[in-house]
Design a protein around this nucleic acid. Structure first.
Lengths: 127, 127
DNA sequence: GAGGGTGTGCTAAATTTTTAGCATGAAACG
DNA sequence: CGTTTCATGCTAAAAATTTAGCACACCCTC
C-alpha cells in the first residue's frame, strides 16, 4: 500500500486476497475471486505485482506461494488511516462510533468489556 | 462502492476525493490530485463515472458540481466492512484495538471519555 | 514410453482506462 | 464589439491493464 491509488482494479483485488489470507498460491488467489479469469491470467498478474514490488514469492514444494511485500501491520495502519481520512475527517472517534453503530447487534458483552479495557489502557498510555 | 473491486485506479481516486469532500467541481477534484492530468482528462473521467452510475452532477451556477451517487453513510459502512474483512478477520474488536493502538498518542482524555460513553451506549443497545 | 495433470516463464493480443484536444457556448472585461 | 476566460460535449488516440495460450519441465500412473 505504498501509495493509496497506485494499484489497478485487478491488482487491488489480488493484494486484498493476500492481505486477507496472509499468503496464497496462484490457484488459491484464483479461487478467491468471484470473477476469476484463467489460471495463467492470474499468474501473469501476480508476476506483474511482484515486478512492481508489491508482493514476493516463496517456493512451497512444487509451486510458488505469494505474500505481500509489506508487513501486514503496516498495511493495516495505512489502510485504516486512508479510510479515516476518506470517510471520517481523520477522526478516530467518528470511526469507532461508526463501527459500533453498524456492528452493535453482533457484539457480545465480553467483547464490549474488552473494548472498555482497551480504552483504559489507552488512557494510561496517553498520559 | 457497489462492488469492492469495480473501480480502476483513477476512478477509485476520484470517488475517494468526492467521499472526502462530499461534493466537488471538476477543478476541485483536479486540485485534490497529487498527480493530476489535464482538466479535460478529469472531466472525461467524471463523465465516465457518471455513466457507470457511481456519481451524479448538479448545476451550480455556470458549472457542474459532482456528488457520489451512493449516500455517504452507506459508503462508509461498506468501506468499513471491507477493511475489517481484509485486515481484521471481520472483527470489530480487532479493528478498534488497531485504531487505538496506532492513534493513542493523538487522543485527548476527553476523546477517550467519549469512546467509553459510546461503548456504554452500545452495551445498552445490544442487550 | 505415453498420456495426463500441474507448475513456470514468456509473449503478444485483446480489452479497458486514461488522456488531451477540438468545437462550441456563455460570461466577463476593456 | 472583440478578446479572453471558463465551462461543456464529444472524439479518438495513447497508454495501461488484463487476458490467455504456447513451450517446456516435472511428476505420477498405466
Amino acid at each position: 500500500m505504498k501509495r493509496a491509488h497506485a494499484l489497478s482494479r485487478r491488482e487491488r483485488q489480488i493484494m486484498d486476497i493476500l492481505y486477507r489470507s496472509g499468503k496464497a498460491t496462484a490457484a488459491e488467489v484464483r479461487d478467491a475471486m468471484p470473477d476469476a479469469p484463467s489460471y495463467s491470467a492470474v499468474r501473469a498478474m501476480l508476476r506483474i505485482l511482484e515486478e512492481k514490488g508489491h508482493l514476493r514469492h516463496e517456493q512451497d514444494g512444487p509451486r510458488y506461494v505469494f505474500l505481500p511485500a509489506e508487513p501486514r501491520d503496516q498495511a493495516k495502519r495505512s489502510a485504516l488511516r486512508h479510510l479515516m481520512e476518506t470517510f471520517f475527517d481523520g477522526s478516530v472517534e467518528q470511526t469507532v462510533a461508526a463501527l459500533l453503530d453498524s456492528e452493535t447487534r453482533n457484539m457480545k458483552p465480553s467483547e464490549l468489556d474488552k473494548l472498555s479495557r482497551l480504552i483504559e489502557e489507552a488512557r494510561k498510555k496517553g498520559v
